[in-house]
Structure formats: C-alpha cells, structure tokens
Design a protein around this nucleic acid. Structure first.
Length: 801
RNA sequence: GCGGGUGUGGCGGAAUUGGUAGACGCACUUGGUUUAGGUCCAAGCGCCGCAAGGCGUGGGGGUUCAAGUCCCUCCACCCGCACCA
C-alpha cells in the first residue's frame, strides 16, 4: 500500500501542477496503522471508527504529505456510506441484479475480525479457519454471470490496462464454445436414460471410446448406494481431490460401471466409467473421452485398455496415435476420417462449428457457450460489514426494507464471546416490524462481503456527501477514473467486481453510460519488500531475527548477541512471522515522509518490487539534506551574473524535460536519477546566484510531487509566493534544449574509437573531413580510403574499413 | 500443460526506441577534514591486461555501416491459472 498511495499522490500532485482539478482518494492504510493504534487493527468495528478516530487518522496523514478524503476501509463501517450502498442494493433487487439461492458455503463459526485475535493467544480458544463447517445456507448473489460476455468483450477496449490483468480476467471468465450431447444408455438406470456431456471438441466425436462421469455425478451417487465397489471408489476419489498438490500429481483413476451408452452418430456402444478427474462443477459433470486427441484421455485409455481411434490425421499422414495424443493448433488444417457431416480437410475451428450445426440439425446436441464465471455470493455471516437491508416476515416472506429506514445501522453493543455471527445473538436488533404488513418480523443478519464496499467507492468519491449513492452531474464530470494504481492481487476479484458494479449502477441510473468501464488506465505496482535474516537455533529449528538484532558487515549478517553469522534472504514479501516487516511509521519517525517517499520511488521501476534497505533510505535522506543545505545557501546568496549561467540553465531545461517525461511514463526511478544529477550539477556550478536561484526553484518544483515538504520549504525560503503545489509545472524551453555544439562519437567498423566536437549544423562534408582527419581513424586507415563513411547528423559517425 | 513476464557490473537499475552500454544510487577503494568513528568534501570503480589492446547486455545464430534494442533458436528464473472436457 505504501507504494501505490505514494505513486498515486505523485501523479495527482503532478497533474495539479499541470492545471488539472484532481480528485485523489487516499486510504488510511497508505502507511499502515501506527503502532499505538494496534488495538484498532484488532477490533475493527463501527464503535472504534468514531469521528474522533477518523479525525485522528486524518491528522496523522497530513505530516506524511498525503491527502485523505475517504477510504474504502472505513466506508465499510460508515453508515453514511453503507446506507447508500443499501439503497443501491434495493435498486439492484428491483432490477433483478441480486437474488437469493441455496448454496453450500464454508461456514466459519469465528468472526475473524475480532474473536480470532482475541482468543488465539493461548492456543485454545476459537480460531478462525480452525472449525470450518460446510453448510447449506440461503445466500444472496449478484448476477454477475449475466455479464460474462460483456465483461469479456469489453476487455479489448481497455488499452491502458496491463495485458496480464486482462488475460487473468479473461481466463477467470473462461468462455468456451461447445456442445452438449446426450449419450443414451442402453438400459435406463434409476430413471436416468441419458448422460449429457459437454465438449468443446465435438469434431473428435468419432474418436470417442468411453464416457467418464464425476464421482459427484447424480448417476455415480445412485450407483454408489447399491454397489459397495462404486462407493469405495467414489469415497477414495473425493478424498484425493481435496488438496491442490495431490491434484497436481494425482493419477487418473477410473471405475468401470458396467453401463453402456450408444454413440450418437455411429453404431458403437461406449463404456461408462467413473473418473476421479472429472469435475462436477464444470460442464455437466460428464465427458466423452477421446484418447487420440487428448493426452489425459489417452493416459486413461492406455491404463484401462480402452480403444484409441483417430478422428483425424495430419494432412498426408495416416499414422495412428501411439503414446502421444494428436493435438494440433485448432487453426491448423487436418484430415478427418469418416466425419458425420462429411468434412474432409478442415481446421478444427471450422470443423467444430460445422459439427455443432450438424448435431443441432439432427437434434442430437445443443450448441452452447459456457462461462466459468459464477455468480458472486455476497452474504457473510459476520458482524463487520454492511447489513443487507431486508426483513424476513412469516407471512410476506423476504421483504425489502423501506428506503426511508436506511441506513440500517449495525448495533454497537455486541459481544464476541461465542462463535457465530454476533448479530444473531443480539437481544433486540433483529426484532423489527415487517415493512409490508407491519407484523413482527426478523431482520436479515447476513452482512455484505467487503468487496461490495470497494466495488463502487470510486463512484461515491465523486459526491461523497450526497444523499443519493451518486449525483448525476458530479459522476458525469469526474468519471472515469483516469489512473488506477494498485497491486496485482486485485487483478481478478476487485477489478472484475468493480466493472460489474459500474454496469449495474448504470442500469439503476447511478452512473452514466460512459462510466461502465470505470477505470481508464490501470497500473499494477510492485511491493515494498525487506530482507529476511534467518538462522538455526540450538534445537536445530529455523529462527528469524529482527533487523535490529543483526549487524550487517562484510556483506554478511551477524547476530549482535553472539556474533554468529546468519543467512540473508533478500527481497522477501513482508510477513510478521519472518520478522521482516518494516513499520512505515518508524520510517517516518526516523527519516521523515519525504525520505520514505523519495526512496520508495527511486530505487526500482514502479512495476517491480522495491527492497527496503536502511542503506538506501540513509542515502535518500542524505541527499535530501544536501538539497536542503544547498537551497538555503543559495537563498541567502547575493545576485549577480556569470558566464556559467547559460550552461546551468541549459542543464535545468534538460532536467525539466527528462523529469516530465519520467513522471508521465511512470519512470519515477529514472526521473529521480535526473534530479540527483541536476542537484549535483547545481552544487558544483559556478553560475551566478541569480541563475542558481532559478535553478534551485525549478529543482524544488520538479521534486515537489515526490518530496512535498522539502519543496515547500525551499519555495518559501526563496521568497516565492503561494505554495509550490499550486505553482504551474515548469515547461522546458525548446531553444535551450538545442546545444550549439555536439560531441559526435566516431566508430570504426561499429566500435567506438574516438569523438569529435562539431558545431550543431556543420555540413556533412566537413564532418566527414574532420572524422577522416582524426588520429585514431588515420591510424586505422593506414593510408587507405575507407570503404564507407556513415554520418548520422547529431548522432554518430561510422567509418567502415 | 496453458497464459503473462524477466534475464545488463558485487547489488538496485539507466539507455531519447537501431546510434558513445553501464546514467543515478548502494557497496567497495583511496585521499582530505576529524582525537577517533560517523557526517562532510575530492577522486576511483564492467571484465582480462603492467600497458598497448582485447572482451563484454543469459547461450548460439542471423539482419545491418551500426544490435541490450529487430528476426530465428535454445536456456534459466519469476508470476498467474489449471484434471476446464
């Protein structure tokens, strides 16, 4: 978080200096919670988020040079915000965008926000995640799956999003074009007479040699009840499929049910197997196996001695599949064998479409497009969250709360002394009259997933205190978000949910049509990491040490306590257990916010991780102190002129250009390198104090997005009026960027050997003459004429010998 | 397996997009200041070599007057997804 908020702030300040109005939301977690507020971290609920606490938080932000307007975190516990969210929920309900259905959930009896932290210390009490039950509950869902196609298609228009994020979302939505084919059993079983199978490769149906169904398939369950062998297999198969690692290595196991189905397009009968690799959650929970064109099916067929028959061959070949399935790219032309629709040579892509048409025509199958994306379950059996504004009435059923009764606020007098949702135990909160009939009824105690809060905060920021979720003219004016900065961890859920929410809000009239893609540009920044110091203790177990327990010398790390050398694992994600977490407030206390910002931006490109090192922070701090000293010295100097002025000012304009380009392109580290270089130049310059004043003022301006405090101080010391933040961004003077003379490197056969200094617009013939007269060139030529002489004006000379 | 990405000094990383590779910073070395350490200041610092010179952007090949950058090929590492039918 440190990094994305810092970067966001830099971009915002830069844009302000460019003359833009900036709406720049900032979260309280920008620099983490201060240590003395650790209690807040443990007990996050509205009672803690008093106005006083929020004011306190804002006060802590100001010295960091960060602006704080709102945050999606305290939005979660701010009735002013979640009241609007509840209003929107009711709109969504009207529009059919949210619905209830039964679903199996992993029910965690522990409200992890509070209880887990309370009681985990002694290792005995309730621990979040320790006693998870699978329960079937009636849950609320957003109909995000209705927007699968749109959410997928619209990714194409997001030109300023990282390809990686778009790919991840596309994979998550998981569109596939295929067909559902009924395979009829030779004899009905338990009232079932056909097994529908989904396939994206109906063109290979000729090569089908078995049907595999999931152990969770209704047919498996039916057989399981009667046949102990099937039951044993299914129990084993389900067990194996639980852990991810096991799944990766898991062997393809099968159990022959003895049942047979008719092949829909020829006269064969295919065996029906239960396969541990078939997922009930995807497709129909049943597949036809085509060993010749699917490696998994081939392995399975070889193992159990099933048929392997090619549905197609590579053109000009009739080699049957042996140990490797034939899976050419779908765009490649192949030669089909006795295809039902009469296809001979075609690409799989063409053949699939033709096959689907043929099956539909003969009423043997149903072409369909499937998506992996499932509806978004938003119910949480938790205290901390936005209450779902509905009431359960014995006579009216589920009744939406009246809008005038919003916000439905969370009660503050709750206890966390037993597992489950505290709202369920509250003595009175649930008891409300039915909004419809007025009889006694019960309030819904599920709260909303906090992803709901974060799915529309950007829209709320456009009118944070409006009495409706948004205000048309403000939303129209501010949306879309020009630049969104965040971590890659939000690539799928948060960013997909937000895209859905913007669409849903548009349907309900809360956002303009132009805002259905809420984020124009996305940048995913790297994390701040820190080395881990690890050693082994007497018991032979791994132990981690805090940085302050370690001496760094001679490139190694040594324990202060006994001088023992320990291992350094560089650049690791911060984790409490690895003892490598850097508390941002400590950094602020030790170096100041400017240094923290300067260092975090300077060390590596923003999309990569940056390793926090004391040495690096120290260097940043020293440099900023040097700039400060230099500025104060210049501020106090006499005016005058010097022959060195032009050189300094030329350098200044070049720096303006480079830094501007750097900030524009998110090349903060390179921009900061230029600022270092320019500060060094300025420090050595013998220019007049007039020119140096101009230079240092510009330096302060160019640094101001990164080091607002220092820049303001310099600005003031120079006697400038107003704030540097409000001053217009400096513009490079084109004329000052063009040098009168240029240094041209001279290459001989492409290797740099020498250089000449020439006037900017010297004629080509003269440059050639000078190059040929060069000592190095003379020596290399040894009296001969060069084969070729290349002059790239202003760039380079290459002599080919 | 599929998808995305990255390989440049001891380290983090620059390179106006085909034109002086190693900017800037860290670490290190030397000198000055200081009682000393730190700070501060000056200088050095890709590799081999006393030097002249040679070699250098993961390996190999190619295009070009010129390649870190373009093309082909191989290798390594990181991230995401994954019995997805």
């Amino acid at each position: 978080h440190v990094r994305n908020y810092t970067m966001g702030d830099v971009v915002a300040r830069y844009k302000m200096a460019q003359g833009f109005s900036v709406l720049h939301p900032m979260g309280w977690d920008a620099f983490g919670l201060p240590a003395e507020n650790a209690a807040i971290e443990r007990k996050i609920h509205p009672g803690t988020w008093t106005r006083e606490n929020i004011a306190n938080m804002k006060a802590q932000f100001r010295p960091l040079g960060l602006t704080l307007d709102w945050s999606r975190e305290f939005a979660t516990c701010d009735p002013e915000y979640y009241g609007q969210q509840q209003a929107m929920f009711l709109d969504f309900l009207d529009a059919g965008l949210v619905y209830r259905k039964a679903a199996v959930v992993n029910w965690d009896p522990v409200d992890m926000t509070v209880l887990a932290n309370e009681q985990v210390e002694d290792g005995r009490g309730w621990r979040s995640g320790a006693v998870v039950e699978r329960r079937e509950l009636t849950q609320w869902f957003f109909k995000i799956s209705d927007y699968s196609e749109d959410l997928l298609d619209a990714l194409d228009g997001l030109d300023d999003w990282p390809a990686k994020v778009k790919t991840m979302q596309a994979n998550w939505i998981g569109k596939s074009r295929g067909i559902e084919i009924d395979f009829h059993l030779t004899a009905p079983v338990e009232g079932v007479d056909a097994i529908p199978c989904y396939s994206t490769r109906p063109d290979t149906l000729h090569g089908a040699s078995f049907i595999a169904i999931s152990p969770d398939h209704p047919l498996s369950k039916a057989l399981e009840a009667e046949d102990p062998a099937v039951a044993a297999f299914c129990v084993e198969a389900r067990k194996g499929a639980t852990t991810e690692e096991a799944m990766e290595k898991a062997e393809k196991l099968g159990h022959d049910t003895g049942l047979r189905v008719k092949h829909p397009a020829d006269d064969r009968e295919l065996p029906v197997w239960i396969g541990n690799f078939v997922l009930m959650e995807y497709g129909t929970g049943a597949v036809f196996g085509c060993p010749a064109h699917d490696q998994r099916d081939l392995d399975f067929a070889r193992k159990y001695g099933l048929d392997v028959r090619n549905a197609f061959y590579l053109p000009g070949s009739s080699k049957d599949v042996a140990d490797e399935a034939l899976v050419p790219p779908k765009t490649e032309k192949v030669r089909y064998v006795s295809h039902f629709a009469g296809i001979q040579e075609a690409s799989s892509l063409e053949a699939i479409e033709t096959t689907i048409d043929w099956f539909e025509e003969h009423r043997l199958g149903r072409g369909m497009t499937r998506y992996r994306l499932r509806d978004w379950g938003l119910s949480r059996q938790r205290y901390w969250g936005c209450p779902i504004p509905v009431v359960h009435c014995d006579s009216c059923g589920v009744v939406p709360e009246k809008k005038e009764n919003l916000p439905i606020e969370l009660p503050e007098d709750v206890t966390f002394d037993r597992p489950g949702n505290p709202l369920d135990w509250h003595p009175s909160w649930r008891q409300v009259p039915c909004p419809k009939c007025g009889d006694a009824a019960r309030r819904e105690t599920d709260t909303m997933d906090t992803f709901v809060d974060s799915s529309w905060y950007y829209a709320r920021f456009t009118a944070p205190r409006a009495l409706t979720p948004t205000q048309a003219k403000d939303a129209e004016y501010w949306m879309n978000v020009d630049q969104y900065i965040g971590g890659i961890e939000h690539a799928i859920l948060h960013l997909l949910y937000s895209r859905f929410f913007a669409r849903a809000m548009q349907i309900c009239g809360h956002l303009p049509e132009s805002a259905v893609e809420p984020f124009d540009a996305l940048f995913t920044q790297g994390m701040v990491t820190h080395a881990i110091y690890q050693g082994t203790n007497q018991a032979g177990r791994k132990e981690y040490y805090f940085p302050e327990e370690v001496d760094l010398k001679d490139g190694g790390a040594f324990l202060k306590e006994d001088g023992r050398e320990i291992e350094i694992v560089p650049s690791a994600k911060m984790s409490k257990s690895k003892r490598n977490v850097v508390n941002p407030m400590d950094i602020i206390a030790k170096y100041g916010a400017d240094t923290a910002r300067w260092f975090v931006l300077s060390d590596s490109p923003p999309e990569r991780d940056v390793e926090w090192t004391d040495a690096g922070a120290e260097a940043a701090s020293k440099h900023l102190a040097r700039v400060h000293r230099l500025a104060m010295e210049i501020a106090g100097a006499e005016e005058g002129d010097s022959s060195q002025d032009e050189a300094l000012l030329r350098e200044m304009h070049k720096t303006i250009q480079d830094v501007t380009n750097g900030v524009e392109s998110f090349g903060f580290n390179a921009a900061i390198a230029k600022l270092y270089a320019f500060a060094n130049t300025l420090g050595r310059s013998k220019a007049s104090s007039k020119a140096r004043r101009e230079a240092v003022a510009t330096l302060a301006q160019l640094m101001s997005p990164m080091t607002p405090h220092l820049s303001e101080e310099i600005w003031q010391a120079l006697g400038k009026t107003g704030m540097v933040t409000a001053a217009p961004w400096p513009v490079a003077d084109e004329a000052m960027l063009v040098e009168d003379t240029v240094t041209l490197p001279i290459q001989i056969n492409g290797k740099r050997k020498s250089e000449i200094v020439v006037a900017k617009d010297l004629a080509r013939a003269e440059i050639e003459a000078m190059a040929l007269a060069d000592d190095q060139v003379q020596k290399a030529l040894a009296g001969n004429a060069p084969k070729k002489l290349i002059v790239v004006p202003g760039r380079i000379v290459n002599v080919v010998i």
